[in-house]
Write a protein that binds this DNA or RNA. Structure first.
Lengths: 235, 235
DNA sequence: AGGGAAAAGTAATTTATATCAATTTTTTAA
DNA sequence: TTAAAAAATTGATATAAATTACTTTTCCCT
């Protein structure tokens, strides 16, 4: 079953795909003049919080976590970006530094676009301008939702919700009724949910017993997303 | 003592003041053609989450909380906006609805600018465009910081941090060495910190005993912000 | 100014979550 | 292929925070 109509997925996803989709050819070409494409292995870092930006990144294929690291090395995942999404524009637009770090969650193909080309295209394209304003404003609402989630919901509900969102991102060649395979480390899942790894494992075991999912090694197979939606209880 | 150099206040404040400051006269006038100014009493609502936007708001004088309300009526404060800040542009730029509600925390003078004037000025002013992009990107980093704070820090540290931030907002005619008076309800403070009112009261009592602040009725007087900064421990 | 309502404060208790300590399983790389 | 390392899992315990129940104080409003 599709999630449309029974879960407000837009509340939890950025829409940075829509920044480049069907951009006027002239703008698109100018943006891509000096783009370079690279394959990054799982766990490789695109950019680090605090660094000055040199360009933006486009996920041709793969998944990237955006996260912050505190003094003690503890990570907080802010967002999981998927194929088609754009990264790194916040730092350039704010004229400051990267507010977070970005690292691949799986082997990914990443295109790099130099800062100069991005800024030049931005100067000349009101469409790109408008799309960035629209995307950034939408991101505001997504992060506001995350704040409310973390401040007010217990771990069980937060984990249920993040599994629903991850399931959408991990869908490939999805067929009605099939289980979706989510391949993510327990540490990353814990960091996304805002709890300790052990709690994630415990609640996953409960969800298994309650028939919403199965696991095989680190892989999680979501078999009953409707039950998760009821549990997540997030309008 | 000033907080500059010993606390990274920019990590926790939006910079929407800078959107209108010294905007070219032509742009500014166009924006203000149909503006109307109103005095709102404490607790009055500017706009509600989920409503379609009719314009933007400028805080001529006063303080406004941005918050989300869940099904049960529980509030989560996302941000406290101060004199000079702009509100309500996210909904218009995202071409959707207000992502949060806004209500005054004290009697405030609020200017309303109709959506049409805002959009028209935006079309014609690349400076306004750039400033909005810059502000929205910075807001992203502020909300990412809030997420990390809520997910990883205990109530004591969160409260210490929010008191430091509120102190900056409540400074008026501040003289070196003076205590700053923060006038906010315990419920709002709890909602900002992401905890129950009772916990706020308890920790405030501890802070009083430890000499960082005094209270008089609902008013909180921050007398030793340096101690709070040490406690908040937030690079 | 006084009475009533709302807000603030206190204490005891329960519950959720974090932490600590191990063991088992999976993955990686020689 | 297998040994070593890394990751996942389990259980016990400690700690932080939420909840409940109540008292006291403050602040409006007539």
């Amino acid at each position: 079953m599709s999630i449309q109509g029974i879960f407000p997925i837009d509340k939890w996803n950025f829409k940075s795909e829509s920044i480049l989709t069907d951009l006027p050819a002239a703008d698109f070409e100018q943006l891509m003049v000096h783009k370079s494409e690279h394959v990054l292995k799982k766990g490789e870092i695109l950019f680090r919080e605090g660094a000055y930006p040199s360009g933006i990144y486009y996920i041709v294929e793969g998944k990237v976590k955006k996260y912050k690291t505190d003094k003690t090395g503890r990570e907080q995942i802010i967002y999981v970006a998927n194929t088609g999404e754009l990264l790194g524009y916040h730092a350039i637009l704010s004229q400051y530094r990267y507010p977070d770090s970005a690292a691949t969650l799986e082997e990914s193909r990443i295109a790099f676009i130099p800062k100069e080309d991005f800024l030049l295209t931005l100067q000349q394209s009101s469409i790109l301008n408008n799309r960035l304003l629209k995307t950034l404003s939408h991101e505001f609402s997504v992060l506001a939702n995350s704040i409310t989630l973390l401040a007010q919901k217990p771990v069980r509900e937060r984990l249920a919700l993040q599994l629903i969102v991850l399931r959408e991102k991990y869908k490939v060649n999805f067929e009605e009724g099939e289980a979706v395979e989510i391949n993510i480390s327990r540490d990353d899942l814990a960091s996304l949910v805002g709890t300790a790894r052990e709690n994630v494992v415990r609640v996953l075991t409960e969800f298994k017993e309650e028939g919403m999912l199965k696991t095989k090694g680190r892989k999680i197979f979501i078999s009953d997303v409707k039950k998760l939606i009821v549990l997540a209880n997030a309008g």
